[in-house]
Amino acid sequence: MTEKMFSKETWLETLRGLTTEYTVFVPVKDGDFHVFQPLEKETVPDFDYQNARLSPKSLVYPQSERMFEYSLDEEDPERRILKEAPKEYTPRAVAGIRPCDAHAFQIVKRNFDNPEFRDPWWVQRFESTTLVGLGCNEPCPTCFCTAMGGGPFHEEGLDVLLYDTGETYLARSCTDKGEAFLTNAGGGETADEKTLKRAAELPGKSAEGMPESRKVDPVREKTINDLFDAPFWEEVAFACINCGTCTFLCPTCWCFDIQDEVEGKQGDRIRNWDSCMFPLFTLHGSGHNPRDQKFQRVRQRFMHKLKYYVDKYDDGFQCSGCGRCVQFCPVNIDIREVLQLMSNDG
């Protein structure tokens, strides 16, 4: 483990210096909210932020990704043969990612990189990405990472964790990748006593500002059928408009759809994010839809995250508690409330 101290100005210069080795993504204020953008000459990063509106999952798992391409030109001897579309795997670093979003990558990894299946594109992109986290000194009222097994200074999933101690950042490596990042970064000073002490106090102070998390363990003990048939789903789903805001803003939603798009004689096979909120999501070729009602789709989203995943992997929820769906659900369906219902009444 390496610990280094950077003044905030030096840190920015250091990041700029690293752009020869990595594409460095940083939070940038774009209108009313923050987005992760590559650090370029003109880019003005803003680390004094709560979190990005859209989760950084798209950096590893883009909303639309060209998987294969093919020719439909009858003259082309290789017509109709799928070829892998060119992809980019040069080293990247995401600087300022929040611990909840890094934790989310570990959750998504279960789907894309497991003993049974390895998704080559997700894996290669994830492996070429270094996650340089920024601990949360001031969690939002909608944050509930601690209830989901994470925390505002949680290191799981991060390669480096930064502590904002006011004038300086204390950077602590958490993995070999993080170690390499700090080595590449160079510079920085050995952390002094004062900075170490301040950094050590931050998680505790932050925890005080965390909204109180309620007991969520009982949901593990409920049977799937009892929860599935629970009486509260109709009320939970009533307000839902079945838009994709929750799933598309979520750092842990991983479902996708594969489509072929053709323009002229060129064809592309594209993988697009999908959403269990959309009626098309489970529409069968026969025309039958096993989830043709709104409440079934809403129930699926919560059951997947808070029950099926829990039972299948026995390692927490498919949720990192970032609170985006709570903040931006247009009709105020609050996953924390649903979790309570599932814990109490199921």
Binding site: Q327, P330, N332, R336
Partner: peptide, 12 residues
């Protein structure tokens, strides 16, 4: 009344 400020929830 919503659980988040400025976001009320339709209710039946």
């Amino acid at each position: 009344k919503g659980t988040v400020p400025m976001m009320n929830e339709p209710l039946l």
